[in-house]
Design a protein around this nucleic acid. Structure first.
Length: 284
DNA sequence: ATGTCACGTCTAACGTGA
């Protein structure tokens, strides 16, 4: 089972990029952020034609999130992050898909620092952390996927000293990510690729893509039961180089169909998962 | 400060957010 997250940066302006990637990558579930379209302008016809059911929470001009599921309809379980009924920004949507709770989130950028946008980011992070604790307490398999607008560590930035005062890298924001993860969530990409430089975003400015001046902003946090099924995690970097690309690349994880141990028999997982060492073969 | 995108608007250069 392949689950992806992709900040599309305008679902209508980049629909051809999205459809081309869906066709190539064939993800089972997709979390999208930055639709930049109101509900009535979500391109459901084209998405369905590509073989996906969808739920979405749009907004004029900014934000907007959606969850797609190949060959099935996601069951919406929540729209909007709890904790502030006055928050009108479309940054959170959650669905039940194939026995998993999938939360799709778009954390506020927070620049400039200091200011009301940064305060909003920190408040939003606290609300997410409170809600994530509730989800963990339910003891159901949960995936928290999306654009967190945080580089968790110095390894996640091409040049950390340049970003020290930016809302994406401020110590209190990194701390907020750490506090959230330490509840018991597994950072999928970092867990499978410790010590590796991995980026998911390259600015449009100053040929950031050409220079590989990237940031790791898009993350998968997995509840313990899901983490036990994790077999692969990657960034579809090439998509960032496509014509009219988003400034983010799609990120995906592969989960085994059953909980461990399967010893490679009976699991109908893809070649991607077969190429990854089995859990019991991995060095501890 | 700059750079480059998308979106929206009093449809053609801006303002805004990232």
């Amino acid at each position: 089972m392949k689950i992806a997250t992709f900040n599309v940066n305008g679902i209508n302006g980049r629909l051809q990029v999205l459809l081309r990637w869906l066709e190539n990558a064939q993800p089972d579930v997709v979390c999208l952020q930055e639709l930049k379209a109101p509900d009535e302008r979500f391109p459901i016809r084209e998405i369905e034609k590509a073989g996906y059911g969808a739920i979405w929470q749009g907004q004029k001009s900014w934000n907007g999130v959606a969850i797609l599921a190949r060959g099935r309809e996601p069951i919406a379980t929540r729209r909007g992050l709890p904790g502030d009924p006055t928050d009108g920004q479309s940054r959170f949507i959650e669905a039940a898909v194939a026995g998993l709770v999938i939360a799709c989130l778009y954390l506020p950028n927070g620049n400039p620092v200091p200011g009301p946008k940064f305060d909003y980011k920190l408040r939003w992070f606290r609300r997410l952390t409170d809600y994530a604790a509730e989800l963990l307490a339910l003891d159901v398999p949960v995936v928290l996927a999306g654009d967190y607008n945080v580089m968790p560590t110095e390894l996640d930035v091409y040049k950390p000293e340049r970003w020290i005062d930016d809302a994406l890298f401020r110590p209190e924001v990194r701390e907020a990510f750490r506090v959230l993860a330490d509840q018991g969530w597994t950072d999928a990409l970092r867990t499978l690729h410790p010590g590796e430089r991995i980026y998911t975003f390259w600015d449009y400015f100053r040929d950031a893509w050409g220079r590989n001046a990237g940031l790791r902003l898009d993350h998968f946090l997995l509840s313990p039961a899901v983490a036990d099924r994790l077999v692969a995690a990657h960034v579809d970097r090439a998509v960032r180089g496509w014509y009219r690309a988003s400034d983010h690349a799609p990120v995906w994880i592969e989960l085994s169909d059953k909980a461990w141990p399967t010893r490679g028999l009976g699991s109908a997982s893809s070649a991607a998962s077969a190429s990854v060492p089995r859990r019991e073969a991995r060095p501890q």
